[in-house]
């Protein structure tokens, strides 16, 4: 019985996945706590409970994400770029380009048949192309982050938002609210600003083959659809698992390779 785990401690959420013979038997997402160690423990406990197995059953566990260095129970750590590549290919076996928008980072990578990452590009300093941007904006609008995604479809004349700086964008949004612009137009403007930033990154790696999106923002339909328009290509959906846990899935898959000896040993 080969039970393996992957744990992805991100800046906004932490995720754990338990896999058995290539199938997910339990997963869990929590809002990240101030200390990465606590986040990792809580996420793993949740996943173990869901899978109905105990920590001792896990043969190998790989940690990834922003807080990966602080996770105590893992056998090794791997970058989330590699994990998302692996996880994405598992979720969509035809994926060749992966867009991962995390809480504080946005990455676009090209992957090969085994999910190995080739050329990749990651966003630079500002938070405006990341999940954090949407979270801040949703807070200003006083709506849930899920609702924000749905606003684009209902918008009539989306606003143009300052998109290079989250703080300025926030000031703009407040101003638009006060001047009575509809929440749909504001929301659509936010999603468009976000997509615009991501589109530059996507096009800069010259996407090929099927495009797949991972990370929490993949669930924001407004961003995904605007992004599709901007890059002029479909972003494939997969129902195999929640795209937000793709990194943790990738970590679990790499763990399985370790246990099965299929993968080459990491140096």
């Amino acid at each position: 019985m080969n039970i393996v785990a992957g744990c992805d401690v991100g800046s906004l959420t932490s995720k754990a996945v338990i896999m058995k013979n290539g199938k997910i038997i339990g997963s869990h997402i929590i809002k990240s706590k101030p200390r990465p160690k606590d986040s990792a423990d809580a996420a793993l406990d949740g996943a173990l409970a869901a899978a109905g197995v105990s920590k001792e059953d896990i043969k190998y566990c790989i940690g990834t994400g922003y807080g990966r260095e602080k996770i105590e129970f893992v056998n090794e750590v791997v970058s989330e770029i590699k994990c998302h590549g692996k996880g994405a290919r598992w979720m969509l076996p035809t994926a060749e380009t992966v867009i991962d928008i995390g809480g504080q980072d946005c990455k676009v990578m090209k992957i090969d048949k085994s999910g190995n990452v080739g050329r990749f590009s990651a966003n630079d300093k500002c938070a405006s192309g990341t999940g954090r941007f949407l979270e801040v904006m949703a807070n200003v609008l006083n709506i849930g982050i899920d609702e924000l995604g749905k606003l684009s479809a209902k918008a009539k004349e989306p606003i143009t938002l300052a998109s290079t700086c989250t703080v300025w964008a926030q000031a703009d949004v407040i101003k638009y609210i006060n001047s009575g612009v509809s929440i749909e137009d504001i929301g659509a403007g936010i999603n468009a600003a976000m997509s615009g930033r991501v589109a530059i990154l996507v096009n800069s790696v010259k996407p090929e083959g099927d495009i797949f999106m991972t990370g929490g923002v993949a669930k924001n339909i407004g961003v995904v659809e605007t992004l599709e328009k901007l890059i002029g290509r479909r972003i494939k959906r997969a129902r195999k698992a929640d795209p937000q846990i793709a990194g943790a899935i990738g970590a679990a898959l790499l763990s399985a390779e370790k246990v099965n000896g299929n993968g080459r040993k990491v140096k």
């Binding site: 143009t160 300052a162 700086c165 300025w168 000031a171 703009d172």
Partner: peptide, 12 residues
């Protein structure tokens, strides 16, 4: 480029 600062904000 109005995306850096919107014209409304600039005018204000």
């Amino acid at each position: 480029d109005d995306r850096v600062e919107s014209w409304d904000a600039t005018r204000e």
